[in-house]
């Protein structure tokens, strides 16, 4: 589904990513782990074309490096940013409409009704402006908005950050439901227990390079690796 080879990216003169390579198979959930500033969000921004990057990025067999963001999105890369970036003046229904793109062959397209089933909290808020709903609801709306584009691959940047435990549970259920539908997901997380419950494989980033790579269960059975790369 996605192959990343030797990805370099940064802001201005500050180089953040120094040769990151990994791959995702269709239907897989891969989590990017790492401490603050390790380069998780930067990897995602580089993948969606919002940061100048060098290296090879292949999505569904097409090299998308240096493509403009809208073409990458149309090819099927859906990104849910860490800050959620909700349009404050648009209602929930309008926000979903902004994300709407044609269906991708072979899959039922996402509709507001299906999304309100996935995120039951959003249904009653249909006509509420995005700026006037809670943080958890905004996170759900951000994911729903991206799903309206029927992405092949979903990039979720810290979906559990700053949410109440009960909302984190709902988020986990939603991600597992998406996984059950066969959606390929690249997740960035700091919350290891959350990641352990949804991800198949893990990649650990440290100062812009990959330092560990393996299955999620291998990581959970390897306390020394966790201590070395993830403990603060």
């Amino acid at each position: 589904m996605l192959t990343v080879e030797n990805l370099h990216a940064g802001y201005g003169r500050a180089r953040i990513l120094r040769g990151v390579s990994f791959a995702l198979a269709p239907g897989e959930v891969l989590v990017l782990l790492g401490r603050n500033g390790a380069g998780k969000s930067t990897t995602m921004k580089a993948l969606v074309g919002l940061l100048p990057a060098t290296g090879r990025i292949r999505l569904a067999g097409t090299d998308i490096a240096r493509w403009p963001p809208h073409r990458i999105a149309r090819l099927g890369l859906g990104w849910v940013p860490e800050e959620r970036r909700i349009f404050p003046d648009l209602t929930v229904a309008e926000t979903l409409e902004v994300g709407r793109r044609p269906a991708r062959d072979g899959r039922p397209p996402w509709t507001p009704d299906r999304l309100f089933t996935l995120f039951p909290n959003l249904g009653p808020l249909r006509d509420r402006p995005g700026g006037r709903i809670s943080g958890g609801e905004q996170q759900m709306l951000a994911i729903a908005r991206t799903l309206m584009g029927n992405p092949r691959l979903l990039l979720l940047d810290e979906p559990s950050e700053g949410l109440a435990p009960v909302i984190v549970d709902q988020m986990q259920a939603a991600i597992l439901a998406l996984k059950a539908e066969g959606v390929t997901i690249l997740l960035a997380e700091q919350n290891l227990p959350f990641a352990a419950r949804v991800a198949d494989r893990a990649v650990i980033l440290e100062t812009g390079a990959i330092v560990w790579n393996g299955t999620m269960s291998a990581l959970m059975n390897n306390p020394p690796a966790r201590a070395r790369h993830l403990q603060v």
């Binding site: 403009p68 809208h70 999105a73 940013p81 349009f87 003046d89 409409e97 902004v98 908005r145 584009g149």
Partner: peptide
């Protein structure tokens, strides 16, 4: 829909691009 996209881009043009809209 055009107006909707314009209003969304007024709030956050990069996000709109990342949703597949040619700005």
């Amino acid at each position: 829909r055009w107006g909707l996209l314009v209003r969304a881009a007024t709030a956050d043009r990069d996000m709109v691009a990342a949703l597949g809209v040619d700005q």
